[in-house]
Design a protein around this nucleic acid. Sequence first.
DNA 1: AGTGCAACTCTTTTT
DNA 2: GAGTTGCACT
Length: 758
Amino acid sequence: MEASLPPYLASLNPEQLEAVRHSGGPLLILAGAGSGKTRVITTKIAYLVRERGVEPESILAVTFTNKAAREMRDRAAAIEPRCGRSTIRTFHSFGAWFLRRNAAAAGLDPNFVIYDDDDSTTLLHAAFPQYTRSECGRIASALARAKDLGLEPDSPDLSAAFRDPQLRRAYAVYEERLRRTGNVDFGDLIRLPARLLRDDPAVARRTRQRFRVILVDEYQDSNVAQFELLRLLAEPSESSAEGAYLCVVGDDDQSIYRFRGAEIRNILEFPSIFPGTSVVKLERNYRSRQSILDVAGQVVSRNAGRLGKELRAERGGGERPKLVLLEDQDEEAAHCARLCEARVGSGGSWSDLAILYRTNAQSLTFEQEFSRRRIPYRLVGALRFYEREEIKDSLAYLALISNRRDEVAWKRVVNKPSRGIGEASAEAVLALAEGESPGGLGDLVAASRRAAETVKGKARSGLTGFAELVDGLGGLLAAGPSGRSGDETLAAFLEAVVKRTGLADYHRGQDEIAGTQKIANLDELVNAASIYPRSAEGLAAFLETIELDRSLIDDKGRREGQAPDAVTLITMHNTKGLEFPVVIVTGMEQGLFPRDDEEGEDLEEQRRLFYVAITRAKDELYLSACRWRRLHGRLSQTLPSRFLSEIEADSLERAGPGSGDREARRNGERRYGQSLGEPGGAGPRGTAGQARGAGAERPEASPWRAGQAVYHDDYGSGVIIKVSPTPSSGPLVVVRFETGRQAQFFPRFTSKLEPSRT
DNA sequence: AGTGCAACTCTTTTT
DNA sequence: GAGTTGCACT
């Protein structure tokens, strides 16, 4: 390495250095797991400012999570303080920032609120009351996908992308309803800036003059709309013949958000879309042992749609990952608990360990077992603080105070707590508000007051009271508490809102009836508002932060960061970007991970998810599978995940469970293990092929036929009443026993069922 | 307008 | 098995 390099560059490896110093055409950095990706981006930002004379204000860096954005900002500023002036944000927060600055041009209320999926569903339900709420939910998510794809209500491609011919109309109506509220949804934060750049030359010129360098992190998770926004930002404009310098960083093997609209082709095809692209691969892994990377590499190499990378461990060898086969999920939880206890017993800490699973529902067994054994754990991501009723209620009042055309917020709180305002009165208000502003929507609070004159009974006083309440709160925000103003935070205002609306009493009552924690949650929300000033601007900032960064508070009001010493229970998706000395990937069963209906691109995505899970481990990796799995309230027998057979036999150590009912287990275990990991990785067809060759082709040779008498070790005598073939598990037989009990079995996997001669 | 019961549906979820 | 939603009932 050159002697002249400043210290912050000297410690980079040659590939990292190349990525940092690259300039000119577009750059694609393919950064494998644990390869120092964030370090490269932050160093590159600092390098551009320090060595290349780039103005920090002209740098735009976008990420997908607030956590990643914070980290990037902090680390870049730690190297070069001037980087604090760069725009380092999430895609969506950049979009919100951009739209607030160009609200008029975009046709938005400058104080617009951001609707989440639930709000979109409510808006749709208001527009299409003939559909149920859950149908509206499905339509809302289809519309969100359409926006991810950059499609408009009149795009010809809309019909190709979605089956339902009604969707186009639903999209158009939804857009109309959303526009008249003055608010936006998540998709709009990407789509509307792109549209503005396309249609408004003045805005486009100003924006392109400002941002000369654009960096994107986790590019494999970008969607089509985000791609279009990037291209429009980076495009040359009349004032600057050169487009912005575009650098994207990502790992095609870690693309796991297809179901949310992520388009892996964005990264796969980047070099052909942007001619002259340089590609730098970062394949030195500083996190995991080679034995772990071997397994990861074997699995992901089965994917067809990938650019191809091979990680090499800088930390060397390590123990082979261990696979443990267990009887059921209770034993799986006990096994995990024993591993945790062993680690702590030998001087480690609880926080060294992470238990990974595919679905949140799987966490329950672990929680119970860990509580019983007094093992401290923290559950990541399952808490949906902002989706709770009491939180949404309070935020709806705030949103309505901020934007009095917010139909969704108004609808939510106009009769909450109950003021005797029913469907008919609400319709009357809406009709008035619509009349007030042709084609749009007027002030819903004023309309509520005026509608009071036309309705009768309880609704009349209810509407008047509601309007006075909201007006009063609006005044309270502007004026401050009687006399003194200025030196109070938004928390005091929010507290007043919760009290004066009656929400506090209402939810306190709920707490008493149902033993919930609603008041405690409201306290946390109030607490979170304390870092904002008591003003309209402070309120708007608070609402935006809450919509765009839901990790800010959890139930205990803890900020991320000072995590207690506890075992981490977490979904595989949520582990992206994290690392642990010891990782246990649980539920490695066919039907769960992957699901039986996951094929083709979906299957490849699940394989990438497994890859992400594996590469979280620094020193030790355990995999576990259960023979019996309780799912959706049903107990069923399972086969080991096909992913396990994709790992070479000698890369894994097959370990028995540490203790327990050995005798019972030995039988099951041996049989269960048979179909596992044929050497050389017989591949996806391993188990299915066997089934086809053996049973299904010669059904007459099978003893499993309807009418056949059988005997079962536990249930006694019975008769087969139904046999159905399965693609990979042999026949499934349904037996009615003499006791009247009915049960189903896979004869291939049980020795307890046998044909009898009667 | 509010309550209660039956029926339905179950992934993953950066923003 | 659990949580949510829709409908019917009062």
